[in-house]
């Protein structure tokens, strides 16, 4: 515990900044109903009300409070992105580890399926499927999780491969250990660091991806508050020099930058600080 604290103190400014922002976002997401002065979908005034006064950041195109929607947006967008990433990791990570340990036709089969899925650009694939199954939150989560699982699979397999070739795994195999032991005791603990870093990067990617889809009007559907669609709904203000629609975009940028800063620091640490 003390060591962790020292690590945090000695972390570079960018990583400390990142961790602070992540913490802030989590708190906002958790306590959204307490923090928001108005309801998520409540129409409280005229459209495009200016900043200040009753509405801290003005109102949106339908007259809903911008600040409240930003706060609730943290909850919705973060929550969905997090859920998607977790699903992608469960699916892709498990398959990747098993493929690396089992080898042979299991590995071959899974790898070829992933190769083919990855041959299609993700955004196009998502648009294609969403156009068919419709844009509900569930289909959004499932589709993106499946697509992202291919990337996780590649990385998990590659990381696990470097562990699997080591002699202690061979020793465990020769002892007669089963798959469960090999995955949970021998490989996973040694693959954890890069996988955690990848979780951060994947989260950023999923987050940006969902925001982009929402921005295109194909992601999280109204009236749910979501940062991507908030930009889209209020974009017209930009041409009048009003920065309000940039706020949700900034919110997206800030969290992804923060996560990236933290991950960058973690990767740098785990690479053994060879550059000095």
């Amino acid at each position: 515990m003390k060591r962790l604290f020292i690590e945090l103190i000695r972390a570079p400014l960018s990583a400390q900044f990142g961790m602070a922002v992540i913490l802030l976002y989590i708190l906002v997401a958790l306590f959204a109903p307490v923090l928001a002065p108005f309801g998520e979908t409540e129409v409280v005034g005229d459209g495009f009300a200016p900043w200040g006064g009753q509405f801290l950041l003005g109102t949106d195109n339908l007259g809903r409070d911008m600040f409240s929607r930003l706060v609730f947006g943290a909850r919705n967008t973060l929550g969905i992105a997090f859920l998607t990433t977790v699903l992608a990791f469960l699916l892709g990570g498990t398959c990747g580890l098993v493929a690396a340990i089992k080898g042979g036709w299991v590995d071959q089969g899974l790898s070829r399926v992933v190769d083919i899925l990855m041959a299609i650009p993700q955004l196009i694939f998502a648009l294609l499927i969403l156009s068919v199954v419709g844009t509900t939150a569930t289909s959004l989560v499932l589709v993106i999780a499946l697509l992202d699982a291919t990337r996780v699979f590649r990385l998990a397999r590659a990381v696990a491969m470097t562990v699997v070739v080591q002699d202690f795994v061979e020793a465990a195999r020769l002892r007669g250990e089963g798959l469960w032991w090999l995955v949970t005791r021998e490989v996973l603990p040694n693959a954890a660091a890069p996988l955690i870093a990848e979780f951060g990067l994947r989260f950023c990617f999923v987050f940006l991806f969902i925001s982009a889809l929402s921005f295109l009007g194909l992601g999280i559907q109204p009236p749910t508050a979501d940062w991507g669609s908030m930009v889209r709904d209020n974009a017209v203000l930009i041409t009048f020099g009003d920065v309000s629609p940039l706020l949700p975009a900034l919110a997206v940028a800030l969290i992804t930058v923060s996560v990236n800063f933290v991950v960058d620091w973690m990767l740098h640490k785990s690479s053994g600080l060879k550059e000095c």
């Binding site: 080591q166 002699d167 202690f168």
Partner: peptide
């Protein structure tokens, strides 16, 4: 395809002890 007993009787020691021990145990 070997039984646990057959596996137990033959043990192995490796060239590079660093990679032969799980660093997380």
């Amino acid at each position: 395809k070997r039984s646990k007993e057959q596996l137990r009787r033959i043990q192995m020691i490796y060239q590079i002890p660093d990679t032969a021990l799980n660093p997380r145990q």
